[in-house]
């Protein structure tokens, strides 16, 4: 594998990671901690939204992120022909 290709692969991986980690941060630290008071004013299905993010919502988001990351990386591996 060529050097430039390895660099390009790595760069795309990093940008994926950053994108997903931003969502990860917003769902847990953002909605569950930093803005929890504000979100608690929103009620739905018997929850206060901030509290829900802190106790359950963030976990649902984490799960979705891991599924999406695994998929995107499998695609990326194929694109750069580095899959096993």
């Amino acid at each position: 594998m060529k050097e430039e290709q390895a660099v390009a692969y790595w760069r795309e991986n990093i940008s994926l990671i950053i994108r997903y980690l931003v969502i990860w941060f917003v769902a847990s630290y953002g909605c569950g901690i930093l803005f929890v008071e504000t979100l608690n004013n929103i009620h739905f299905f018997g929850f206060k939204l901030g509290f829900w993010f802190a106790q359950q919502g963030s976990i649902f988001v984490f799960l979705a992120l891991l599924v999406m990351y695994a998929r995107s990386m499998n695609k990326l591996d194929r694109k750069y022909d580095v899959h096993e």
Partner: peptide, 21 residues
């Protein structure tokens, strides 16, 4: 109550870092 949320988020959210980093 809410104060325990750190355990719930922390002990699951760590897997996101584990999988990506």
């Amino acid at each position: 109550g809410y104060d325990a949320s750190g355990y719930l988020m922390g002990w699951t959210g760590g897997y996101v870092m584990l999988a990506m980093l």
